[in-house]
Design a protein around this nucleic acid. Structure first.
Lengths: 132, 132, 132, 132
DNA sequence: GTGGTCTAGACCACG
DNA sequence: GTGGTCTAGACCACC
């Protein structure tokens, strides 16, 4: 279901949170879908169940999933999650733009970068960096 | 000279590296300017000299400062530092744009956001987040 | 596993880096082999764990090992390490030859020295000097 | 008379020792030639007289110069100095050759490198590295 | 258990 | 005075 990157230097539970969030946001996991049990996922990924447990706790804390004792974990209401995620990305985008403005780049420089991105089929985009 | 944020979850030495880098990039610290001595900065920030030392070590390794035993540490050649920093910011910007594209935003949505930023006197930009 | 030379004037952590590099280059330590834990090696060498930690930090920075929090440190990809090491040795060799040329030695003097080395079973080579 | 390299990370007194040795070995300074006074050289190089003093002490310890109270310092007998220096360089050269042999290079690889060096007018030789 | 960070305080080399 | 190294011992995050 998900794949860990051993080169990623972030804690494993954080990777799991991120991957599952992505699956939920992208619609692969829909509302009320059951998540793999802690034990199953731990076995699949060959990691400690504690680590999976911690990831699920994190997801529950942020409201993305809900856990029912004895039944398992399920995807929660996603509307808020999606909206929050979109807002976060917009904020981050504006923040970057501001910094580039501070570095003396002009509006046309940024719009041309964006134009490039939207007019390439498979852009030479950079992968997310997990350097830390 | 610099101020630590106790809420920042990153290690102290990393905060120092970032703050000093920012001062050098923004031009507050110019080439060959002396940095505060390890002991002085440690006393100013009420932290252990070893921690400052580690930050300076990091800065020297990345070539931002140059250190002479018995004399002190000095700002080094900044051309490379500035260029690297600009490239990093551009990458981050493109990355954000790609994610927003994946979230179904259109080119005009992004360009209009940029237009807003460049035509506001004091933008409502968010502060850098140090969540980690 | 490794042995420190108290007469070596270089810092301890640098000796550790050198010894471990040698073990990796010579193939005693192979890719993905686990290194001794920081605490273990510190106990073995009767030195402070911080000192070992510093050596490991150095090795990771140069890409020779890869470290996973909570798991330990492991030998990384060695191709680059080996190539760099070979280049360094070639440079040093050429440098020596240049100096001898400057001291009025002729090409045949050098080639005959080399011939000797390659035709002796156990060369009377000098040990690395750690004078600094 | 001599020039310090501020980028050289070795202690200043060590640089002075090296430069003066080179001048004596190459014959620019001959036996019984007077060396600049400690004060003069310190003024010339804009450094602390203590530092020059330490360099002279080092040179006297290794027998390259001799100091007469109230008169100054003078170049000593150079025969031994020259011979020792040559022997040291030969040892170093053989050592390098041995290491390259251990790295699976063949005799012809080394002799061809030497041939290159002796048949280039202004060789693309590497500068001495003072990285540490 | 592991590594990562930090403190307190020491000693050394250099200028 | 400066930076560089080391020790002793602590606390944290992660697994």
């Amino acid at each position: 279901m998900i794949l860990l990157d051993p080169m990623d230097r972030r804690p494993i539970y954080e990777q799991i949170v991120e991957k599952l969030s992505a699956l939920m946001i992208s619609g692969v996991l829909k509302e009320n879908d059951p998540l793999p049990s802690v034990r199953n996922m731990a076995a699949d990924l060959s990691i400690n169940p504690n680590t999976v447990q911690r990831a699920y706790l994190e997801l529950e804390r942020e409201g993305s999933i809900r856990t029912v004792k004895g039944k398992g974990s399920f995807v929660a209401d996603l509307k808020n999650l999606r909206e929050n995620h979109l807002e976060d990305m917009k904020k981050e985008f504006k923040n970057c733009a501001l910094k580039l403005k501070a570095a003396d780049l002009q509006e046309k420089d940024l719009t041309s970068m964006i134009h490039q991105i939207f007019n390439k089929t498979a852009g030479g985009g950079e992968e997310n960096d997990h350097s830390r």
